[in-house]
Amino acid sequence: MSNVPAELKYTAEHEWVREGTPVTIGITENAAEALGELVFIELPAVGDRITAGTVCGEVESTKSVSEIYAPVTGTVAEVNQAVVDEPQLVNNEPYAAGWLLRVDVEDATGLLSAEEYSALLDA
């Protein structure tokens, strides 16, 4: 069973959000496992505006490619260069060193709790 940390918020599209100023976002362990080992990540640049529910990047394994949907609306404050250089960090530590973006948030409504996201995975 996939690890779904209780302190995070989630989207149905398998992104996670850690609250804070700015918030941190990434993709869930379940998503990373389904994709296989990542070989390429494309992320927006610092200062780019992202809008909740729209595509803000993509992750690619040998077998698959996935678009990353912004879980929140706001401005990118920091990009995790370590995962761009070494995408496998997302597979190894999806909730820690494998984070993707830090975002100055304007709107972070409509996210799922860990319980709700887990229920979705079990469905």
């Binding site: 599209e13 398998h14 389904a34 077998k63 698959s64 490619v65 678009e67 949907y69």
Partner: peptide, 8 residues
């Protein structure tokens, strides 16, 4: 995320 897989 939406995933496209070259699959089977």
């Amino acid at each position: 995320m939406t995933t496209t897989t070259d699959d089977a």
